[in-house]
Design a protein around this nucleic acid. Sequence first.
DNA 1: GTAATTGCAAATTCTTTGCACGGTC
DNA 2: GACCGTGCAAAGAATTTGCAATTAC
Lengths: 151, 151
Amino acid sequence: MDTSLALQKTKKHLRESGLKLTPQREATLLVLLENEKDHLSAEEVYFLVKKKSPEIGLATVYRTLEILTDLKIVDKVSFNDGLARYDLRKEGAQHFHHHLLCLECGSIEEVEEDLLGSVEQIIEDNYHFLVKDHRLTFHGVCKVCQAKATE
Amino acid sequence: MDTSLALQKTKKHLRESGLKLTPQREATLLVLLENEKDHLSAEEVYFLVKKKSPEIGLATVYRTLEILTDLKIVDKVSFNDGLARYDLRKEGAQHFHHHLLCLECGSIEEVEEDLLGSVEQIIEDNYHFLVKDHRLTFHGVCKVCQAKATE
DNA sequence: GTAATTGCAAATTCTTTGCACGGTC
DNA sequence: GACCGTGCAAAGAATTTGCAATTAC
């Protein structure tokens, strides 16, 4: 939400890794903040950043997104459509949020609730696997498309 | 497990869609059955099929895997390494199984337990989303790598 | 027989890399 | 001035497509 706060935090984060907050990186982060609810591909980020900074190159966007992923500021996700999408990590979220992918219209809804606490416990207990993160996507039919189907 | 039964079922399945069971398709399916526990990429399937039928082309493997995915005989999954992997659907399984991806060694373990029943109920109730399938992968450290770390 | 299928090579799509130039402390 | 970062163009990797020849049913 607080854009300038997010920028400050990222700047600090970058510095700690010996990196700079360049205008290109700032513009990219702003685009991600402004489109928090979307799941933009690298190319989509590129086009949006280009509106602010027309001189930016696609390679820079890729490089920036990789850095932001390493810093765990964004998460790289893939919905089986063969291209990577980038999703801003919610401030202070303990766990990565989940997604509802509609098979009819392709929309993606986010689910912020944790829901997996007890499941992770089972995984750690029964499989002796140390859980660090997760990716959970439900495939199905969204509210809107269900309504359409019964028309 | 029962290979010839699986072949018969697939043949019927193909016929119902007006498709043929060619030697190439049979060889591809056999490779998937023989490597049920792996998560082969298209290229890996191609090399394994080539051992049986050296004349097969990579494009045919891609086309076959797409058909098998459409018929829901295999599931196409992606573990953020930028290439698609194909996972045989367990006979009679109500739900797609889950995965444990080790961030240290890259190994993938399968979890057959359902675990998501109550979570799906919450999604349907609270989000009015009709769940058809899911993809759940835990990222973390496997048993073996944990042991290595404490050496 | 005929519509489906194949192998090959070329084309596409997404992403990464090499490199010379520009900016920063 | 060393080093990081950039844009561009070329390279690379994964996947798809066009097409003439072949095959399953």
